[in-house]
Design a protein around this nucleic acid. Structure first.
Lengths: 119, 119
DNA sequence: TGAATATATGAACAAATATTCATATGAGGT
DNA sequence: ACCTCATATGAATATTTGTTCATATATTCA
């Protein structure tokens, strides 16, 4: 039932209906986790850079003006979230976007931002 | 130029091209900020609940089994990001989604998650 | 006016996370 | 085999962030 809410007047019907319809805890966790990965300036920059072209770690570090280490750490996070993939060529590792969901998600994000500028 | 990268072999042409094409720092920051807001389980749950119906703070607290205070704090964050809006009716405050970008973004996120389950 | 209640908010604490630094790994060239 | 270079990674640190607790605000009702 209703546990941790100190309020007394609650619309119980609504609460119960919504509780039923909510996706599984696990799914919501994973979705949040995905957005958390997108919710960092460095990683968004990396993704944005990869929209244009596949790039090696050094290139990315140069584009972002960040250390190779920092970029590499973040690439690992992006890789774990299946947002980027890589291809090795000798000692150089080229990263690129794994699929085009990211582009769509990013564009929607951008749309939201832009619509709330004038307002 | 290329500053903080210790690497010597860099594809300078690519780097310069991508640097040009990158959106403004400020825009990228805002986009990351938006996804950061979506990147928390509590907030995703709130949003998900609001997909079904507008709800007051108490209802939400009940659905999430969380304290009224915690929910209220997160609603503030969602409000600041223009993801939710509210309507007062007496002492009760009803929250709902501000626009339907969120729904689209959420669904794309879900899609990404689901496609990477079997793999 | 005063009590009750829904919501908001500030401060404090705990947990998560991004960057740096130092170093490891692994591939090419000599 | 050795040296160089691109990348990866572990530990440490600093910062951010979510929740709790206590309390403030605001509205209804008596």
């Amino acid at each position: 039932m209703i546990e941790k809410c100190s309020c007394t007047v609650v619309h119980e019907d609504v609460v119960n209906k919504v509780k039923e319809l909510m996706p599984k805890e696990e799914v919501l966790y994973d979705v949040a986790e995905l957005f958390k990965v997108l919710g960092d300036t460095t990683r968004i920059k990396i993704i944005c850079a990869l929209f244009e072209s596949e790039m090696c770690v050094c290139d990315l570090a140069a584009v972002l003006s960040m250390s190779q280490s920092a970029v590499s750490h973040q690439l690992r996070v992006l890789k774990a979230a299946r947002l980027v993939k890589y291809r090795k060529e000798g000692k150089v590792v080229y990263y690129s976007l794994d699929d085009d969901h990211v582009k769509m998600i990013f564009d929607l994000g951008l749309l939201h931002i832009n619509e709330n500028r004038g307002a």
